[in-house]
Amino acid sequence: MGLYDRDYGRDERTAWDRIENPRSMTIILIVVTVAVFFAEVLFQNTTPIRLSDGSEAMVKSSPIADWLSVKSDTLYKPWMWWQLLSYGFVHDYQKIFHVLFNMMGLFFFGRIIEQRLGQMEFLRFYLVAIVFGGIVAAVTNIVMFQATGVQASTIGASGAVVATVILFACYYPHQQIYLMMVIPVKAWIAAVLFVAMDVLGAIGLMSSMGSSGNTAFTVHLAGAGFALAYFYQRWNLKWMAPNSLMDLPSKMRDRSRRMKIKLHDPDKKLAQEADDADRILAKIHQQGESSLTAGERKILERYSRRQREKRNQ
């Protein structure tokens, strides 16, 4: 059964009508992300740099973005792995459309997916999508640095937002959405178009078509891949909840204890050996002793020896 063959929602309501609680985890994520954006604007720096012709130019930078972004060496520094999550809440403060489009996508699609998954499961889905995209971004930056010598960094919630949109298309493939706020298409068609454009961008074709070279196409694809795996593998990230993680050591001890009991159960072993001996004796009665295999002979000899020892005790 394909992505667009599944029949969800047999009532007359659309996916948009299923939103019951407008104040949700999605809104909290948007508020946090926008707050970080304004912090970037508030604490920006202006640094002079000298150009090749000897003149100086003033360049704006954000210490917050630099601190929270995923860089080429993030994977090499375990103490900086928190950047694999923090980069997803940072955006280009000089381009308001970067954060605006991401938060619009999260607002429209995130609330519906949250309604479907529940607040905490959606939060786990969103954060894991960010982390997975961050790992891919770090690898991409490493490859770029080795190929060009340019140190690159990655920011933005695009990967997690793409994951949310793709998961929406999986759950509601025939729901009509509007591309560029104008063109009506079914959700599964939009999902295919998004993924196709990101694939073209990732292999470098979009650059020749006039697309921005600053778009993290590989992070978008990571988000899409994570959403598809989550949907088709029927994943549930409940095990990542704090209470589940706290119970993990006790669960491991219980499992180890059960394994030890299973491995050191002499009564069960003796009962199995007796059953095997009865089966072999029945085979001798029906087919003769010559029909026994080498393994069956060893089992019978071992059983006979154990019975003799028991009588001599």
Rank of each mutant, 00 (worst) to 15 (best):
L3G: 00
D7I: 08
R18T: 13
I19S: 08
E20A: 14
I28P: 05
L29T: 03
V31M: 01
T33F: 07
V34R: 04
A35T: 11
A35G: 10
F37D: 02
F37P: 01
A39Y: 08
R50W: 09
V59W: 04
K71M: 01
P78Y: 13
P78C: 09
Y87F: 15
V99N: 12
L100P: 01
F107E: 08
R111D: 08
I112Y: 03
I113L: 14
L117E: 01
L127N: 12
V131M: 11
F132M: 13
F132H: 02
G133A: 08
G133Y: 02
V139I: 15
I142Y: 12
I142L: 15
I142A: 06
F145L: 14
Q146G: 15
T148W: 00
Q151R: 09
G159N: 12
I166P: 09
A169S: 15
M181N: 15
A196I: 03
I203S: 06
S207K: 06
M209D: 02
G210T: 00
S211D: 04
H220F: 07
G223W: 02
A224Q: 10
A229V: 13
P242V: 11
P249V: 06
R257V: 10
K269R: 02
K269D: 11
L270Q: 13
A274K: 05
H285K: 15
G288P: 02
E289P: 05
E289V: 12
S290T: 12
G295P: 06
R302W: 04
R302H: 12
S304H: 05
R308Y: 05
Q313E: 15
